[in-house]
């Protein structure tokens, strides 16, 4: 019973993140949304590690790795955004539209 509620919360967070990725115009918000999706997964992993079919510590260890990787990803994303911002002087992601075809 408890597990279901944690999973539902994670699913809601994941969907909010996905909605953000698909609909937000601001580039920083886009990065936030991706982070939200990754953190929803962390919640899922921790819930499974405590209340899953076979509870064990592996899920929490997995979480350490995902947190670290997500941080690296955010750093790379922001760095790219800054170099793009210097060129375009806007953080509106729909202005980044010179690639088409």
């Amino acid at each position: 019973m408890y597990l279901t509620s944690y999973l539902a919360l994670a699913a809601i967070l994941f969907c909010i993140g996905l909605y953000g990725v698909l609909s937000k115009r601001n580039a920083v918000m886009l990065l936030f949304s991706v982070e939200l999706m990754l953190n929803a997964v962390n919640l899922n992993l921790v819930a499974f590690s405590r209340l899953g079919l076979f509870p064990n510590i592996d899920g929490q260890i997995f979480t350490f790795f995902t947190i670290t990787v997500a941080a690296a990803e955010a750093a790379v994303g922001l760095a790219i955004l800054i170099s793009l911002y210097r060129k375009k002087e806007t953080a509106e992601a729909d202005q980044y539209n010179s690639l088409k075809g």
Binding site: F14, G17, V34, M37, L38, A40, V41, N44, L45, A47, F48, G52, L53, F54, P55, N56, D58, G59, F62, T66, V69, E73
Partner: peptide, 18 residues
């Protein structure tokens, strides 16, 4: 990556192993 991880988390949850 988030999709991939989310999928992996379910497989971990169902089997308890990575």
């Amino acid at each position: 990556s988030a999709f991939l991880l989310y999928g992996m988390s379910f497989f971990y949850g169902l089997t308890g192993t990575t």
